[in-house]
Simulated scan of single mutants.
Amino acid sequence: MTHRYTSTAIFLHWLVALGLAGTFALGYYMEALPFSPNKLKLIAWHKWAGITLLALVVVRVVWRLTHRAPSLPSDMGPASRLAAHAGHALLYVLMLAIPLTGWLASSAQGVSVVLFGVWPLPDLLGKSRELGTALQNTHRILNYLLLAVVIGHVGAALQHHFVKKDTVLARMLPFLSKQ
């Protein structure tokens, strides 16, 4: 039985978490800015971060599929187990869907994604203003849904640590381990 995540899984978890927080914050900040060269630069950085996160999440999914996660605590009931598995599945789906909808929106809006200003990525769709707007709105909504799921994820981890006093959080933060 596995008692904690691998070092690679822990590293990818926290790297993606920091990347998501930064990319979300940048997206939220730049939305309110007036159109300017600075806003265009921030949009490019946001796209670069999103594509980089997409690649990291794919690596993370592959790692997760090839390395067993620690078992859930034996005292967790069926509803709690279902909620934990559903929450994790939703996190992965959103972490993949959000950058893809951003890339699709850029393609539909006729604004190619050029990774790091050097590597042009293929447009995934033909130009369509209406579709671009719909995809941009979907991208925004999915980001707020991810924020809600992450808040639930963090809340559940803190509840396990401070209320249930089990090792669920320590599996992802080994310095909390009492071993």
Rank of each mutant, 00 (worst) to 15 (best):
M1D: 08
R4Y: 05
T6W: 12
A9L: 15
F11Y: 12
F11P: 07
W14S: 09
W14T: 04
A17S: 11
L18H: 07
L18C: 11
A21M: 12
G22N: 07
T23N: 15
F24S: 06
L26D: 02
A32G: 12
A32S: 09
P34W: 02
F35T: 06
P37S: 07
P37D: 15
N38L: 13
L40K: 10
L40T: 13
L42M: 09
W45L: 14
W45S: 00
H46V: 05
A49P: 07
I51Y: 04
T52Y: 10
T52L: 10
L53D: 06
L56T: 05
L56M: 12
V57P: 01
V58K: 00
V59L: 15
V61A: 12
V62R: 01
T66N: 13
T66Y: 15
T66I: 02
H67F: 15
S71R: 08
S74I: 15
D75T: 15
D75L: 12
P78L: 01
S80P: 00
R81G: 09
L82I: 13
A83D: 15
A83L: 14
A84D: 01
A86E: 14
A89C: 08
L90G: 05
L90T: 04
Y92N: 11
A97D: 05
A97C: 07
W103G: 07
W103I: 03
L104S: 10
S107C: 05
A108Q: 02
A108R: 01
A108N: 04
Q109V: 04
Q109I: 03
G110E: 10
G110R: 01
V111N: 14
F116D: 03
P122K: 11
P122W: 14
K127E: 09
A134H: 06
A134L: 13
L135R: 03
L135Q: 04
Q136S: 14
H139A: 03
L142K: 02
L145R: 09
A148I: 03
V149H: 04
V150R: 01
H153D: 05
A156R: 01
L158F: 08
L158R: 03
Q159F: 10
H160L: 02
H160P: 01
H160V: 02
H161T: 10
F162R: 08
K165L: 03
K165E: 00
K165F: 00
T167H: 11
T167C: 04
A170R: 14
A170P: 01
M172D: 10
L176I: 04
S177Y: 00
